[in-house]
Design a protein around this nucleic acid. Structure first.
Lengths: 215, 215
DNA sequence: GCTTGTGAAGAGATTCACAGCA
DNA sequence: TGCTGTGAATCTCTTCACAAGC
């Protein structure tokens, strides 16, 4: 009870619950249960109840949860009322896709600037997002109140980019570069590595159905 | 010891070790230690040793690990010798970026086909990847021996896409759609949700430094 | 009766700490 | 001496199962 500290595993599921709840609200459901939520979120009901209990949220025994109220509680826990401006570093295929990914802005993470080393891009705009030189990063971060840096550069430039982001005062980094970047302890990095995800799938494929090529 | 069963948490780290080892090999290092590997992989040395012990891999006490041998062992555990053809479903910004992401092919996951509902795209090629109608998915999967499906469609089309992939015989799905798709038990889905990642970063930002807007 | 909230049990992952061995 | 390999301890997360309460 009380928002003492919420386990990391729970935090990682809250966005999923929020999506499910928003969906329910959109369907006009005013009330729901841990069973329904579990189904929508792809987890089991006990986990839903325990997770929600960390928010200090109270449903009604025998009845369920009030959807509106739960949207409010989960939103507040996640702090979605806040807006955290984002800078995308590196405008290759992935960087461009991220820079104009509407799902970000919609959820409070507007991409307000991009950075790339290509002189041909600097000074231009990609889908309304101004592109700056990496040299100007600190300035841009300060001016636009940027809170999150996304690294979408090639692996070779990732550490340098991370260093610049940190120097610019950024404390939250989302890293797509397929490299491990090292940063000070007070900086949080979340790494999303697409190849790693595929390799994990490949590991299980290999176990389940060793293909013609075999080992 | 022996490759009995490798814990999931370990499997998820093996690709990172493999990258680190490849880097070491490229630098001409023939031998390494759990300390060095830990540094490169961004974890601690005890974890490296325990993880590697699940592979039945033996280093040499007092000396360390042979880089070449370890590359071989980790590669074998992950099954990277295998090639698993991929189909990308949905050619929006993200889908296009994924379809020509060279990092996939390089690691044994060539994108051999794409699928989109846009009649203007069907029959064409995106960076050499032929685009088909979703109706032809089963056929394409069978013809090209596709093992993995990537869902990069808008959320609304994700479940239908998953259903088609499953019907086509796909048992491994990487889902970028920001929705929870339901599939039979024997199908593995890994969800990568960029908004969720940002929301998790946002959660910690809010905790650490509640911004002007506050709660 | 029905569904939440939660202690307690169980499973899994991480870390410790040291024996084993080159 | 130095570094691995690993049981044991610890921590975290999940699941169970049932009392609490509408």
């Amino acid at each position: 009870m009380a928002t003492g500290h919420i386990p990391e595993a729970t935090v990682a599921r809250l966005p999923v619950y929020l999506r499910s709840l928003t969906e329910l609200a959109g369907d006009g459901q005013s009330t729901t249960s841990s069973d329904v939520l579990a189904e929508l979120a792809g987890v089991n009901a006990a986990k839903v109840r325990k997770d929600l209990s960390y928010l200090g949220t109270h449903g009604t025994r025998g009845v369920g949860y009030d959807v509106r109220h739960l949207v409010f509680e989960v939103s507040r826990a996640l702090g979605v009322a806040n807006t955290w401006p984002v800078v995308v570093c590196g405008l290759g295929n992935l960087g461009r896709a991220l820079a104009n990914h509407t799902g970000f802005t919609d959820r409070g993470f507007p991409v307000v600037a991009a950075v790339d080393v290509d002189p041909g891009l600097i000074g231009s705009s990609i889908d309304g997002v101004p592109v700056h030189s990496p040299d100007r990063l600190a300035e841009v971060v300060a001016d636009l109140g940027i809170a999150i840096g996304v690294i979408a550069t090639p692996g070779g430039a990732a550490q340098e980019t991370a260093d610049r982001l940190v120097a610019a005062g950024i404390r939250s980094i989302l890293d797509f570069s397929s490299t491990v970047v090292s940063v000070p302890d007070d900086v949080e990095v979340r790494a999303v590595d697409l190849s790693t995800e595929l390799q994990i799938l490949g590991f299980h494929l290999q176990r389940d159905l060793p293909p013609p090529g075999d080992v």
